[in-house]
Simulated assay, not measured.
Amino acid sequence: MRINNQLEHLADMAVFANVVNCGSFSAAARRMGVSPSSVSRQVGRLESVLQIRLLERTTRKLRLTDAGTVAYSRCQDMLASAREVFALSDTHTAMPRGTVRVSMPKAVGFQLIHPHMSDFLQKYPDVNVQMMVTDRNVDLFEEAIDLAIRVTDSPPIGLTGRTLMQIKHLICASPLYLDKYGIPSHPRDLAHHQCLYLSDDERHCQWRFARSGEVHNVKVSGRYAANHSEIRLQGALSHLGVASLPEFTARRAIQNGELQLLLPDWEHQSHQGGTVWLLYPSNRFLPSKLRVLIDYLVQKLH
């Protein structure tokens, strides 16, 4: 195929990559502001030119073929290179400037990220930060998000990033509660305590503990449950029971003696634990305003 004819299909390659990133033709169409039929037509045209099938289409989802997986990787490289070209002016700006939109879970945003924002804004006076604090996974492309902070062990396709920290969960209670009801010496003892747990999923009543190859699952219960760690913290401080809390939420209260760490020889394997990632679109080049924020957070929290 002549080079001019190849260039005609660069847009089709971009559309194909967007379909894979979005997971469907309709989602990609919404992102690009066109009709689903137009998106389907462009992907079909690319398949016709290449004479290979890129996607297996079902009523429920799309699946990349082997050839489609290779093509998607190359199309992602093409889009990354295009973003680098458009961001060249930012590369050569002496001082980072502009607005960075960041999405993050509520507890992570309030307790981990927000405390460091004052220093960042003073250090970079030409950079503005817009924090979107939500526990849902936002679509970076559709919602114009520059950076997503997520707790995940599997970054989604189309995104890359850096690890920030591991989130460990601790079991703790107030000294006054423990004086009244006793200190649990084994995970199974928790079944007889008032426990403060997440309220939005039945599996959160099942607390899992591990120690030297030994594993115990305990079904806990209690009169007070909440799907926000700050509320569970305040509940524990009010002597309402034994709480499962992220380490960063409980740290200060434990250091001050307001809460007592329980079962320190056991690892509490919470469903809410995992790796905190800083995620952004796959791109070898990052705008300076985004790069300095990422480097700053890694320096503060890694």
Rank of each mutant, 00 (worst) to 15 (best):
R188C: 10
L286S: 06
Q111F: 01
F110Y: 08
M132C: 07
V70C: 11
V220M: 01
K61Q: 14
S103V: 06
N4D: 15
V100K: 04
Y124H: 07
S26P: 08
G213P: 00
L55D: 13
H302F: 03
S221G: 08
S103F: 06
R188Q: 13
Q260P: 06
P281C: 11
T69G: 14
L147A: 00
T91Y: 12
L259N: 09
Q272R: 08
D295T: 09
G257E: 02
P184F: 02
L297M: 11
C205H: 06
R252N: 11
V100T: 07
V49I: 06
Q234R: 03
S73E: 14
T93L: 11
M104V: 12
R45H: 08
R31Y: 03
S24Q: 01
Q6G: 04
L54D: 07
K168E: 04
A94F: 02
I52V: 15
L50R: 05
T58L: 05
R74T: 11
Q122F: 02
Y296F: 12
L245I: 02
V85M: 12
P287D: 02
D189I: 02
N21K: 02
Q122C: 07
V15E: 09
Y181P: 01
D66E: 13
P246G: 04
V43C: 12
L297A: 07
T163Y: 14
M32A: 07
H271T: 10
K61H: 13
R203W: 08
Q166W: 03
G109L: 01
L121F: 00
K168R: 10
H271R: 11
V292N: 10
C22K: 15
S185P: 08
S89N: 12
A191Y: 01
T58N: 06
D119K: 12
A173W: 02
I183D: 12
Q166H: 08
S35F: 04
T91L: 14
L297P: 13
E202L: 07
L259K: 11
T59M: 07
V39A: 08
I294H: 00
N128K: 10
V298N: 03
K168H: 08
P246S: 05
L10M: 13
G158M: 09
I294S: 00
H228P: 03
T134D: 09
W266R: 03
D135K: 00
E47D: 03
C205S: 12
G182F: 03
H239N: 14
P264R: 05
S38P: 01
W277S: 09
Y296A: 02
L46F: 03
G98F: 13
H204F: 06
V49Q: 02
W207R: 00
T275S: 14
F120Q: 05
R284Q: 10
T99N: 06
H268W: 06
